[in-house]
Amino acid sequence: MEASVKTAGFVLCLAAFLGVTLPANPADADELVRFESVPAKLSPLRIRKAAEQGEILAQPQGTPLQGYLSRPEGDGPFPAVVVLHGCDGMRLSVKELWPKRLVSWGYVVLVVDSFTTRNITDACQSSLPDRVFDAYGALEFLSKSSFVDAQRVALMGFSAGGTATLEGTKIEGNEQLMDHKFRAAVAYYPVCAATQGDATVPILILTGDRDNWSPTERCRKRLARLSDDSPPIELNIYKGTYHDFDAPEFAVGRKVLGHIEKYNPDAAPKSIRSVHAFLRKYLLD
Rank of each mutant, 00 (worst) to 15 (best):
I47R: 08
M90K: 11
P60R: 07
H180W: 10
A154N: 06
S114F: 13
D266P: 00
Q59A: 09
K270Y: 02
S227L: 08
G162N: 08
F250P: 01
C124L: 02
L97M: 15
N25R: 11
C124Y: 07
Y68M: 03
T200M: 10
M1R: 14
A123F: 07
A247E: 13
Y263L: 00
A16Q: 14
L14N: 12
L32W: 00
K100R: 15
M90P: 13
E96K: 13
L14Y: 11
L57A: 04
L223K: 07
L32D: 08
N264Y: 00
T216D: 13
C124Q: 03
W105T: 06
A58W: 00
V275N: 02
E249K: 04
A194S: 12
A40Q: 06
N25M: 06
P269D: 02
S127A: 13
P232K: 07
A3F: 10
K181G: 07
E217L: 12
L257T: 08
R46N: 00
S126E: 09
L12M: 13
P39S: 03
V20W: 13
L22F: 12
R152M: 10
E234V: 03
A194D: 10
M156A: 09
R210P: 04
Y189N: 11
E2G: 10
K239S: 13
T195E: 15
S114K: 07
R48W: 06
A247R: 06
I171F: 13
R118S: 05
G89R: 12
S93F: 15
T241Q: 06
M90L: 15
Q176M: 11
A160F: 06
F147V: 04
H243F: 08
L42S: 01
T63A: 04
H276Q: 15
L102G: 11
V252F: 05
L65H: 10
G76F: 08
A16L: 12
T117H: 12
G173Q: 09
I237R: 00
F158W: 14
L257F: 14
G67V: 09
T165G: 07
D228I: 01
S145K: 15
P129Y: 07
L65R: 11
A187G: 10
M1F: 14
Y263T: 00
L57M: 02
A154G: 08
V83P: 06
H259V: 15
G208P: 09
P129E: 03
L92W: 08
A123W: 00
A15G: 14
I120V: 07
L283M: 03
A193Y: 05
E140T: 15
S43G: 05
R131Y: 01
A27S: 11
F10S: 14
S126A: 11
D30T: 00
D75A: 15
S214T: 15
D134S: 02
A277H: 11
D244Q: 00
A160H: 06
P77K: 07
A267E: 04
P248D: 02
L206I: 06
P39G: 03
T121E: 09
R225W: 07
Y188Q: 03
L97D: 14
V111P: 01
P202K: 06
S37D: 00
P60N: 05
C13D: 14
E55K: 10
K6I: 15
D130F: 01
Y107E: 09
V108L: 08
K262I: 02
S37R: 06
P79Q: 08
A138W: 01
V132G: 05
V186T: 09
R220Q: 14
G19P: 10
D229R: 12
L204W: 00
A185D: 07
P202R: 05
L32C: 04
S274P: 01
S104A: 15
D179I: 09
K6T: 14
